[in-house]
Write a protein that binds this DNA or RNA. Structure first.
Length: 681
DNA sequence: AGGATCATAAACAGCA
DNA sequence: GTGCTGTTTATGATCC
């Protein structure tokens, strides 16, 4: 068992099978491109929201007030975090996106760590008391560490503030007042370098960047993937606040921008950047590694250009064509203080991530060792981003190319592997990237419902990176539906969800939409219901569950499969699934999936989804709270009230009145009885 | 090798 | 007629 598991792990990177082969789906003809649907870009919903109320006041506050205010906030955040870590495991409310925002704004690194991926309930159910305790202790230790780091970070932020005041940094007041900078402003009145902004930037740049950074070494925690986007916001294109905010959606770390600049002066990493910025302004240093492998993009493209917009961190300026982009690049991102600073920040970011990755990797190995699984590889992260490359896993559709974060805002929320393996969907490990051919074994189908947590964790990633999610259409559709308060969506809303949640689905619309419809019709688990609003689709959770838990109950293959999909990022999701599996074997036995048990499950996955701070429910692509037929307010109910629900269902359904299809064969879709597993058409 | 699952493509019907 | 929705069939790939 152990061996097989390790084998899988080992092989995973090479991109063979495993959990989610990202169907490279070279969908024939990729006709795609055009695909215009692109219903609403990356995030058409939500408007940017200022996290910190007092943001604007920043400018007006007296230094003393500001200081006090920030201290208060810092304390609050710390306290909150503490509570979260200590007791939080039981406060479901934490899943609220807003809370998440504030929480995640601080304990970044901690936030990246596994436990938080599980819902409190899951944690409690999954872990034994002793485990929980251990976990808590670990978390607390981390937190303390985190706080120390934060303090350091603040010092640096002080600099930023100072710089801001002096117009050195073009941060907007609101951005500078995010949660992060709300820390005790020590007397850092920095020895700042008076660097008037404006023309003549070169010199300023050098000043900004090089001068010794007091605490220079930024605490790891200071930067986590989750923060990256925000890091850029402050300096990035001023022109897109709205879009930025949209991208942030569940993150709301607006304030981090300050951090970005604050540590813009690392000890000594500058040279390469200021003097050798890549022709295109692409940050070098670590990125270089990436460049070598992924920058070999097509001649006509540009690593900083994609999807019609500038991918310079924080800048999403739309450029119709490469030419325009180049122009934009040269004008907006020329070699000046700001650009240089941004490069530097990027360097820092990469560094931090790598360090973080190393740490997480270590942890993973320790965990695996503890669990008797041989670590897949000593240093998964050190592995060059061979990415889609040659291997069997070339993923044709991955257009993320050099930049996994097309718009500079995307970021693999959880995985440490991100920085180095940009193309790898954070939580899915290598498996998910496997291209070629239709996806097979997508993670979500292997486990109970990791998709929700998986998605939640990597939401931002999928949302912005043109990477095909390693989930089956069925799982995605289900997820889309379950995310809504009413558990029902119209076809069009489902489409919208796809495009909203996955950059990948903003293309090839004809293909995947057809697939969606096909899946809706094909799978019994999707039930069409006539609604006032027309036809909506709901999920018959029971049906859905029926087909999934084949027979993994404790089987070696189950473990193997899960492990194979455990590239760290997925660890959280998969781990929880794995734990769940072992803890609730019943989940795997179809027979046990009676409405009751199912219902107890669903909430988990659903909440998971919302947890990370996604305004999911409301997003439902048009959140218009649908008249929710009572019976659908809860997935389970769909089945529990077969009488009503079922009746309206699918036209073709045997019992479905609407469409008295021919005397429907005994499609057990309605039979509900026991007949656990065998019905798939 | 064969079954199961999934993706993709496409034909077709009903409806607005 | 067109486009959307929904159903169904076919085919190929992958995994077990």
């Amino acid at each position: 068992m152990v061996e097989s598991a390790s084998e899988t792990i080992r092989s995973a990177p090479s991109g063979q099978n495993g959990v989610g082969s990202l169907s490279g789906q070279a969908d024939g003809g990729g006709g795609a491109g055009a695909a215009g649907t692109a219903t609403g870009g990356p995030g058409r919903d939500s408007g940017g929201r200022e996290v910190v109320a007092g943001a604007d006041s920043n400018g007006e506050m007296s230094p003393a007030e500001l200081l006090h205010f920030q201290q208060q906030q810092a304390l609050q955040v710390a306290r909150q975090f503490l509570l979260q870590q200590a007791s939080g495991l039981s406060s479901p409310g934490n899943n609220d996106s807003k809370q998440t925002a504030s929480a995640s704004a601080v304990p970044v690194s901690v936030a990246m760590m596994s436990p938080q991926m599980l819902t409190p309930q899951q944690m409690q159910q999954i872990l034994s008391p002793s485990q929980l305790q251990a976990l808590l202790q670990q978390q607390q230790a981390l937190m303390l560490q985190q706080q120390q780091l934060l303090q350091m970070q603040q010092l640096q932020q002080q600099h930023l503030l100072s710089l801001q005041r002096q117009g050195l940094v073009s941060l907007q007041p609101s951005q500078a007042s995010g949660p992060l900078q709300t820390l005790p402003q020590g007397e850092l009145r920095p020895t700042v370098f008076p660097m008037p902004r404006g023309p003549g930037g070169e010199r300023q740049a050098s000043q900004t960047l090089s001068p010794a950074q007091p605490a220079s070494r930024l605490p790891l925690a200071a930067v986590c993937p989750t923060d990256l986007p925000q890091l850029w916001k402050g300096e990035g294109a001023p022109g897109q606040p709205a879009e930025d905010s949209v991208k942030q959606e569940g993150l709301d770390l607006t304030g981090t921008a300050a951090t970005a600049t604050s540590f813009a002066a690392p000890p000594k990493v500058s040279p390469p950047l200021s003097h050798h910025p890549l022709p295109n302004g692409q940050p070098t240093v670590h990125t270089a590694r990436r460049d070598s492998s992924s920058h070999e993009e097509t001649p006509g493209s540009h690593p900083l250009y994609g999807h019609g917009e500038c991918k310079w961190p924080g800048c999403e300026t739309l450029c119709e064509d490469l030419g325009q982009f180049i122009k934009h690049l040269n004008t907006e991102h020329a070699l000046d203080d700001r650009s240089t600073a941004q490069c530097r920040v990027q360097m820092q970011v990469v560094q931090q991530l790598e360090i973080q990755l190393a740490k997480e990797s270590e942890r993973l190995q320790a965990m695996m060792a503890h669990l008797h699984m041989r670590p897949s590889e000593p240093k998964p992260f050190s592995q060059p981003v061979t990415e889609p490359g040659p291997g069997p896993c070339s993923f044709p559709k991955v257009t993320v190319s050099a930049d996994p974060f097309p718009d500079g805002l995307v970021h693999p929320p959880t995985s440490a592997a991100a920085p180095v393996t940009p193309l790898r969907p954070p939580g899915l490990g290598s498996a998910s990237l496997h291209g070629g051919g239709p996806a097979r074994r997508r993670s979500s189908d292997k486990f109970c419902s990791p998709i929700s947590s998986e998605l939640a964790q990597n939401h931002e990633f999928y949302k912005n990176a043109d990477v095909r999610p390693p989930f089956t259409y069925a799982s995605l559709i289900r997820q889309a539906i379950l995310e809504t308060p009413d558990r029902q969506l119209t076809l069009n809303e489902i489409y919208n969800w796809f495009t909203r949640m996955f950059a990948y689905f903003r293309r090839n619309t004809a293909t995947w939409k057809n697939a969606v419809r096909h899946n809706l019709s094909l799978h019994k688990c999707f039930v069409r219901v006539e609604n006032v609003k027309g036809a909506v689709w709901t999920v018959d959770e029971r049906e859905y569950q029926k087909r999934r838990p084949p027979k993994m109950t404790g089987s070696p293959t189950l473990v193997k499969n899960m492990i194979s999909g455990l590239s760290y990022g997925a660890l959280n999701a998969s781990y929880q699934a794995a734990l769940a599996e072992s803890s609730f074997p019943l989940l795997n036995s179809p027979g046990m999936l009676n409405p009751g048990s199912a219902s107890s499950l669903l909430p988990l996955s659903h909440e998971d989804m919302g947890a990370p701070g996604e305004p999911l429910p409301s997003n439902g692509s048009s959140s218009p709270p649908r008249l929710s037929p009572p019976q659908y307010s809860h997935q389970v109910q769909v089945k529990e009230e077969p009488a009503e629900a079922e009746e309206d269902r699918r036209p073709g359904a045997p019992l479905g009145p609407p469409n008295p299809g021919t005397v429907g064969p005994p499609e057990d879709r309605e039979l509900e009885e026991e007949l656990p597993g065998e019905e798939l058409s």
